[in-house]
Amino acid sequence: MIRLTNVSKIYPLSGADSVTALENVSLSIREGELVVLKGISGSGKSTLLALIAAMTKPTSGDVVVAGRSVAKLPDRFASDFRRNTIGMIFQKFNLLGDLSAIDNVTLPLIPTHESASDIKERAYRILKSLGVKKRLGSLAKHLSGGEQQRVAIARALVGDPAIILADEPTASLDRKLTLDFVEMLKTMKQSGKTIVIATHDPLFFDLGIVDRVIEIDGGRLA
C-alpha cells in the first residue's frame, strides 16, 4: 500500500545551510496494516507522514502510495490524491474555530462536485457514528477537547480515504480521551483502513491492534 525507496528529504535553510530531515529511508506498509512510527519530536516522523500524503516532495528517492508514485506529482494531482486517498489527523486537531463542527467536517469536500446536501449528510452520518450527536452547529472553538477530537477524526474520514495518517494524535488529550481514540482506531482498522500513527506515546507501542512499530531516529530507521 505504501512503499518508500531510498527516500531523503533535505530542507534548505537560509543561506547555504540545510537540515536533513530524512536520510535514505526505505520502508513498506501493507494494506490494512496499523503501523506506529516511534520517535522523539524532530526525528523526522512528521516529514515521513508529509511525504506519504504528498504534502511535500522528497529530495531523492521514490514514494509509491496506493500503486501510484507521488514523489513528483504536480500540485493539482498531489492535492486530488490527498483529498481522495489520505485522511489526516493532526496533533492540535487543526480545526477552524469559527466554523461549526459539521462545516469543519465537510471542509475537504467543498471544492468537489458533490452537492452541499450530500456532503452534509455524509458528515452528519460519520459524526453520529463517532458519538457526536449534539452541538453539530456549534462553533468548533466552543467544543470540548473530546468533541474537537471527534470532529477532527470525522473530517479525516469524510472522504472515505484508504489511508489514515495521524501525527501525535493524543499529545493534547488526557488518559480517558486517549483510550477513546484507541477505540476509534479499532473501528477504523476493522473497516480495512491502512493506518500510520506517528507518536512517542508509549501506550501505542504494545497495543494489541498495532501490527508493527517502526522506530525512527535522526532521520533514519532504527
Binding site: S79, R83, N84, N94, L107, P108
Partner: peptide, 9 residues
C-alpha cells in the same frame, strides 16, 4: 489547513 486537507492551489 485547507491545503493539508487536499485543496489544490
Amino acid at each position: 489547513i485547507l491545503r493539508a486537507l487536499g485543496w489544490r492551489m
